[in-house]
Design a protein around this nucleic acid. Structure first.
Length: 599
RNA sequence: GGCCCCGUGGUGUAGCGGUCUAACAUGCCACCCUGUCACGGUGGAGAUCGCGGGUUCAAAUCCCGCCGGGGUCGCCA
């Protein structure tokens, strides 16, 4: 090794020792006579002093040092002269007096700051990701990710799980997301698909008798990106035999509680994780992945609205819809523009419009002081003061608050108000950034009707086991079937989902038939699963957790790109490598591929 | 594909019809400086204001189109 110690580990205990260090020049301070550099490596920073009275040649070399030069220094760890200690550096009580120095490699001036946490345009960071990763924030994120994954592996190992790798080149299936395809050279005209998740493979491992499997698995989905989604991502994929759903939920709860208390001891985390039904979260939070760090629950105002003379309300109720609302505390004096923004958000989530009711202006106080001329709303003249007060009371509002009300079908109203609730929570900074509010959402419907195609589609995936008592409904009223499916949510993100699985060929075939497949199609696409289920498949279930999202939350970041070493951008391009890229005609020919002309 | 936001020296920002021959900070280069640590000081180089078109006597600034980036809806079993 070119180094005997890490820069960041030196302290008083090393006083008097001669050490060899190697790292990058974080900063240089040239006093003419005396030169200091902050030498940085993965573990931290230590000050190196170049004194011409100690070594003239070292001092001459130090004159040439610039940011990001790679250097090796040999010298003595000495106590800093009293009064010159730097309490902001962990190594700040000591410094290294250079006796020998060697420039291992110079560096061009970097295109952005390595030594400061100033925000830089993301595409520039991604183009020079290897420099971006040198920055303290990114280095901490990547190291945090390592600790998280290591903790998970150790924990599951102790729980009797075995890690098994599954193929990356598998088979395209018709369900789910768009597949990434890989052409076969050996089998002309045929394609592998990259796994969207190892779902079927892990179920086959259960049939194989592995009983407790997990994998830190890379998954691929060719869909549009988001802040929390990119084409390839990492899941903790896990499956167990002979379990009930609570066995899995409790295991995950223990894992996450231990993980957070070990790796992020300052974070607040509530246990046991609350369990909500799907209907419950949709009605109360308007989302199947609610942020539970703040209240502002959605309330049903239909009974009050039905009494009003407001057409928009009464018409919605007449059509078996709902009128519901959400509170915006202290925002009665919102401007026209601010209200328009909220209206637009509601419309973008399918609402016909948004009714706002401002209770007074900047003043605050109890509702009792509310008078008719203090109510500001397009609906004001259609509502009695009593009706406004009744709605305000239900939403637990006081003077100076703003009410957001939407009328329409139950689903649209919930989803639009859910989006507004999330937006308001963010604007008013209601969510404590130091809290991790985990929860489970259960009792999802098994199926959902695709309004465009008229076909039944799985809410989760076609292997989810229905509730036993709902099985007879399969061919009669599929919409009423509930699935043994559960999601894990945290702070407004879905960080995982799983289910108990169907383990008999008979039931599995019935589900596929309901999804619109003919028997020959089922045998062609899923025959391997059905056949496996006929050879003693144990009851089993599992879960998959998004590692990127989890680490993002633990790191307090806004996008998963901040916790992925080499992520893709919104256009699914890797800017470090410029992938995807064209290939040669020879490569295409070998793969039996002819590119289409497109206009 | 729709909607919203952004694009000004290397980096981060300001400027939002004329005083812009584009400002500030930092970085970079040169010189000075022996206890600094975001060292300090003096001087210097560095930008056809993303691209194209239009409006105007006059455009970084207003309008249109395109490109690039981000967020989001659709999509994501």
């Amino acid at each position: 090794m070119l180094k005997s110690h890490s820069c960041g580990e030196l302290n008083k205990e090393h006083l008097g020792q001669t050490v060899a260090l190697a790292g990058w020049v974080d900063r240089r301070r040239d006093h003419g006579g005396l030169i200091f550099i902050d030498l940085r490596d993965r573990e931290g920073i230590v000050q190196v002093a170049f004194n011409p009275e100690v070594s003239k040649s070292c001092h001459r070399v130090a004159n040439r040092l610039r940011s990001e030069y790679v250097v090796r220094v040999k010298g003595e760890v000495v106590k800093r002269p009293s009064g010159t200690e730097n309490p902001r550096l962990p190594t700040g009580e000591v410094e290294v007096t250079a006796h020998e120095v060697e420039i291992l490699n110079p560096s061009r001036t970097p295109p952005f700051y390595i030594n400061e946490e100033i925000e830089v345009e993301e595409n520039l960071r991604l183009r020079y990701r290897y420099l971006d990763l040198r920055r303290a924030g990114m280095r901490e994120n990547i190291m945090l990710r390592h600790r998280v994954v290591k903790f998970i592996r150790d924990f599951l190992d102790a729980e009797g799980f075995i890690e098994i790798e599954t193929p990356i080149l598998i088979k395209s299936t018709p369900e789910g997301a768009r597949d990434y395809l890989v052409p076969s050279r050996v089998q002309p005209g045929k394609f592998y698909a990259l796994p969207q998740s190892p779902q079927q493979l892990k179920q086959l491992l259960m049939v194989a008798g592995m009983e407790k499997y997990y994998q830190i698995a890379r998954c691929f989905r060719d869909e549009d990106t988001r802040a929390d989604r990119q084409p390839e991502f990492t899941q903790l994929d896990l499956e167990m035999s002979f379990v009930e759903d609570e066995d899995i939920l409790k295991l995950m709860e223990r894992l996450f509680t231990a993980l957070v208390t070990t790796i992020k001891p300052d974070a607040k985390i509530a246990t046991p994780f609350p369990r909500f039904s799907y209907d419950d979260v949709m009605n109360r939070f308007g989302s199947d992945k609610p942020d539970l760090r703040f209240g502002l629950e959605i309330k049903d105002l239909s009974d009050i609205a039905a009494q009003s003379a407001f057409d928009i309300f009464t018409a919605a109720i007449a059509e078996e819809g709902k009128v519901k609302g959400v509170l915006v505390p202290g925002c009665a004096s919102y401007s026209r523009k601010q209200l328009d923004d909220l209206n637009q958000l509601a419309r973008s989530h399918g609402a016909g419009g948004l009714i706002t009711i401002a209770l007074g202006g900047a003043e605050s106080g109890s509702l009792e002081k509310l008078t008719a001329d203090m109510v500001h709303s397009v609906a004001a003249k259609f509502l009695t003061l009593e009706q406004v007060k009744a709605m305000a009371e239900r939403l637990e509002a006081s003077l100076g608050d703003l009410l957001l009300i939407i009328a329409g079908t139950a689903r649209t109203v919930n989803e639009a108000l859910g989006a507004l609730r999330q937006e308001v929570g963010q604007r008013l900074k209601l969510a404590d950034p130091n809290t991790l509010a985990f929860a489970y959402v259960k009792n999802f419907p098994l199926l959902r009707k695709n309004e465009e195609t008229g076909r039944w589609e799985p809410e989760h995936h076609p292997f989810t086991r229905p509730w036993d008592e709902d099985e007879p409904l399969l061919e009669k009223t599929p919409e009423k079937m509930r699935g043994k499916h559960y999601d894990m949510v945290c702070n407004g993100f879905e960080i995982g989902g799983g289910s108990l699985r169907i383990h008999t060929a008979k039931l599995q075939r019935r589900v596929f038939r309901l999804l619109g497949y003919t028997d020959p199609q089922i045998d062609d696409r899923f025959g391997h699963m059905l056949e496996a289920f006929e050879y003693g498949a144990p009851p089993h279930g599992g879960i998959a957790l998004g590692i990127d999202r989890l680490v993002m939350l633990l790191a307090g970041r806004e996008t998963i790109r901040e916790v992925i070493a080499f992520p893709k951008n919104q256009s699914a391009v890797d800017l470090t490598f410029n992938a995807p890229a064209s290939v040669t005609e020879e490569q295409l020919a070998e793969l039996h591929i002819l590119l289409r002309e497109e206009e």
